[in-house]
Simulated assay, not measured.
Amino acid sequence: MGVLEYRFTIKELPAEERPREKLVKNGAESLSDAELLALIIRVGNKKRTAVELSQDILNYFGGLKSLNYLSINELTGIKGVGLAKAVQLKAVAELSRRLGTLAGEEKEVIKSPKDAAYLLMPELRYLTQEVFKLVLLDIKNQLIKMPLISKGGLTSSIVHPREVFKEAIRNSAAAVILAHNHPSGIPEPSKDDINVTERLIKAGKIIGIDVLDHIIIGDGIFISMREKGII
């Protein structure tokens, strides 16, 4: 008699391994394609969790790009994908396509610290934990991406030039703006903030990527280290 294999459902997994909890804690960028799809289709079937079913979809059709051209009938042909799940997947694919079109037509241009702060404020002003992000810009100061680099206080051990400029190089950025929040709501730079900024400016000069500014976000207010003459 064979050994009975027990399979965990998503609810039975440790909290840090569940897609929803991972997204809340680490951001959507921390999830795999299959985990993101699992949040959309929500439930799997008797034999497959939502993540496993999502991975089946990606494997069967050759990745995320396939969702753009698959028909409803093709999607429902996968065991465990009914009409409701197929419709959800097609709707998300269409939204993604439209967002991509908008991004291609109209890129955000950062002309001043206020422009960058305006983009960062909605996400950072209410956080109870300090996070460090980058604003990646192309040669025309057009926004490329705003990746999360670290969580926790700004120290040289947490915000390392290697991690900061790895993202910049990967995205072919010509310049970066450093950004983090102060959960206290008061965006006054600390000694650590200034030390880390100076270190990253020096590293950027060696690599050939300009560090234009460091913006600290408070509760509805911000400080630009460049405007304040700190850097």
Rank of each mutant, 00 (worst) to 15 (best):
I144N: 01
D192I: 00
S157E: 15
E163S: 11
G185A: 09
N181K: 02
L137P: 07
G153E: 15
V176C: 11
H180V: 06
N171G: 01
L178Q: 02
I149R: 01
Q142K: 15
S184M: 11
P183W: 07
A173E: 01
H160T: 15
L134K: 08
E188D: 12
I139P: 00
V164M: 08
E188Y: 11
V164G: 08
I177E: 04
M146F: 04
L134T: 06
I169D: 04
V135K: 01
G152C: 09
L137E: 05
L148N: 04
S172I: 07
P189N: 07
A173Q: 01
V159R: 01
A168M: 11
E163K: 11
K145T: 08
L178K: 02
I144F: 01
A168E: 06
I186M: 10
P147F: 10
A179T: 09
I177Y: 05
E163V: 12
P147Y: 10
H160G: 00
L143S: 02
I158Y: 00
V135N: 01
I158Q: 02
K133H: 13
G152H: 06
G153Q: 14
I169W: 00
I169T: 10
D138F: 13
A174G: 15
K151C: 10
N141L: 14
S156Q: 09
K151P: 00
H180G: 07
I186T: 12
H182N: 12
A174T: 06
G185Y: 11
L143A: 05
V135H: 03
D193Y: 03
K140F: 15
V164K: 02
A175F: 04
R162V: 13
E167N: 13
S184P: 08
F165R: 04
A168I: 02
G185D: 05
N181V: 06
N141E: 14
K151Y: 08
I139H: 09
G152W: 07
R170W: 05
K140G: 00
G185W: 07
I158G: 01
A168K: 04
L136H: 03
V164P: 05
